[in-house]
Design a binder for these strands. Structure first.
Lengths: 242, 242
DNA sequence: CGATATTTTGAAATAATTCAAAGGCAGTGG
DNA sequence: CCACTGCCTTTGAATTATTTCAAAATATCG
C-alpha cells in the first residue's frame, strides 16, 4: 500500500500527515500538479472558486483590481503557501504567476469534505487561515502608517521572512540575500505607492549602504539593524497563503 | 430542560444553533456576559489570548500600535462581530471600547474543543474567519489605492454595511443614516490619514450635498450614488470580527 | 544585435501633512 | 442657569512627501 498523499507533497499534505480519513485520502487522490507560465492566471476575478492551490515553486501575485484600472496586490505567494481561500462561490481576486509556477490544485469540495470530517486537520487549517489574517493586518499597518522608505524596508523583511519560512526545501535560516521576482510596478501596487517612489526608496537605501543590488531583482541586506528600524518589528508574521 | 446556549444569545450561539455536542454545551455554559465602559480594553497588546468575545452591543476599535506611537486601527467591531482571533498565545493587537460595550466572553480552550468536535460548527466558523480576511483585503485596497475623500466615502459604506448586517436585532435593511461612535482620530487611524484630512473630506462631502450631519457623530447619506462612485464597490464584504 | 520593456533619475505639480488658531460641545461647579 | 474648562472638530496657511510628467539609462528578449 502506497502513501497516496505523499506522492505530490506540498504543505497541505504535510499538515494532514498525522491524520487519517477516507475524505483526506480522497482529497489527496484528487490533487493534481499543475504548472503555469509567467503571466498566466491561476485564478481570475469573478471566476467560480473551484480550486484551491498549494504552491510548490515560483511566485504568485494575488491582486484586487479596481474598475478604474487601479490595482492593489494583496500578497506575494510562493512555495508552501495557499491560494484560493474564499467565502463565496466567486473569487474577488486575481492570481497571476510572476514566474513559472508549480502548484497542486485540489478540488474545493474535496477540501471542504476533508475539513468537515477530520477535525485535527481542520484545526491546523484554521491556524493557517489565522496566520494569513495576521499577515494582512501587518500589511494594513504598513501601508496605513509607514513612509515610502519604511514600506520598502518592511517589504524586504516580508519577502525575507517568507523566503525563509516557505522555502521549497522546508523552513530554513533567514539569509541576507533576497530575491525580488516581481517588477517595480508589482512592488508599488503592493505597497500603495508609485514605481518611481519604489525606485527612489531603493536608491536611498543603496546610497546609505543599507542594501546592495547585483541586478535590480536580487538584493543583499547589508545593515539589517537599520532595515529593522525602518521596516518595523523583527519580522512579519509568517503566513501561508490567501 | 432549558436550552443553555440560548440564555445569553449572540452570533456564536446562532452559528451553533443546529449542532449539538457536549463540548458545545460546555462552551456556551462557560460563556459569560461582560460589560466594558468607554475607553476600557477588552484585550491588551501582548496579553495572553485567554478569551474570545462575541459582541452584543457597543463598538470596539481593534488596533495595532507601533513602538513610536503610531497607531493603525484594523477594524471597528460592533454587534454580532467576533474579537480575539489569534494564532499565537499572545495577541498582537489592542481592543478598546469606544462606547459602553456588552459582550459574551468565551474561554479560548473551550472554543477550540467545540470546534474540534463539532465539524459543522467549525465549518461555519471557518467561513466567518474567511469573511474577516476578505474585509481586511478591502481595507488594504482602500488605504493602498484610494484618495482621502474616497477613503472617507468607503468608510461610510463600511460602517453602513456593518450597522445593517450586524444590528443587535439581527440583519436589517441598510438605511441612509450612519452613526459614527468613534472620534475623528479613530477614523484617521483607520484610514491611514490625519484628523485634519478626515475633517476636510467630510467638509468636502457636506459642501457638495453628498452627506449631511446633524452633529459630528451622525451622518445622513444623501447622494448614495456619488458615495458609491467615490467609495468603490456597492458595499464592503460583510465580516464578523477579527 | 536591435527592439522593447523596465528601471532610474530629474523637475514640476499636487495631495496630504504639519503647524496654528478659532469654533463648537459636553460636563463641572459656582 | 450660566460661565468656565477641556476636549474634539473645523478651517487656514505653510511645508513636505509623494505623484506626475518627461527623459535617460539599463536590462531583457527575440
Amino acid at each position: 500500500m502506497t502513501l497516496r498523499r505523499g506522492n505530490l507533497g506540498g504543505n497541505l499534505a504535510e499538515m494532514a500527515e498525522s491524520f487519517s480519513s477516507p475524505e483526506l485520502d480522497r482529497l489527496f487522490d484528487e490533487g493534481r500538479e499543475r504548472t503555469f507560465s509567467t503571466g498566466e492566471h491561476l485564478i481570475t476575478e469573478g471566476a467560480s472558486t473551484e480550486y484551491f492551490y498549494d504552491i510548490l515553486d515560483g511566485t504568485v501575485a494575488l491582486a484586487r483590481n479596481g474598475s478604474d484600472g487601479r490595482r492593489q496586490i494583496l500578497a506575494f505567494l510562493s512555495a508552501r503557501q495557499f491560494l484560493g481561500v474564499a467565502s463565496t462561490a466567486r473569487y474577488p481576486n486575481l492570481a497571476t504567476a510572476l514566474t513559472p509556477v508549480t502548484a497542486i490544485s485540489y478540488s474545493r469540495s474535496a477540501l471542504e469534505r476533508a475539513l468537515n470530517t477530520t477535525p485535527g486537520f481542520a484545526s491546523k487549517f484554521r491556524i493557517a487561515l489565522t496566520l494569513i489574517l495576521e499577515s494582512s493586518h501587518d500589511h494594513i499597518y504598513t501601508i496605513g502608517q509607514r513612509s515610502a522608505v519604511e514600506r520598502v524596508a518592511s517589504f524586504l523583511l516580508y519577502l525575507r521572512a517568507n523566503q525563509a519560512r516557505f522555502a521549497a526545501e522546508g523552513p530554513r535560516e533567514k539569509s541576507e540575500h533576497v530575491e525580488l521576482p516581481m517588477t517595480r510596478l508589482d512592488i508599488a501596487d503592493f505597497l500603495g505607492v508609485t514605481i518611481e517612489t519604489v525606485s527612489r526608496a531603493f536608491s536611498y537605501l543603496k546610497r546609505r549602504g543599507i542594501v546592495s543590488f547585483t541586478d535590480s531583482h536580487s538584493c543583499e541586506l547589508i545593515k539589517m539593524d537599520r532595515i529593522r528600524e525602518l521596516g518595523g518589528r523583527d519580522d512579519f508574521t509568517q503566513h501561508r497563503g490567501a
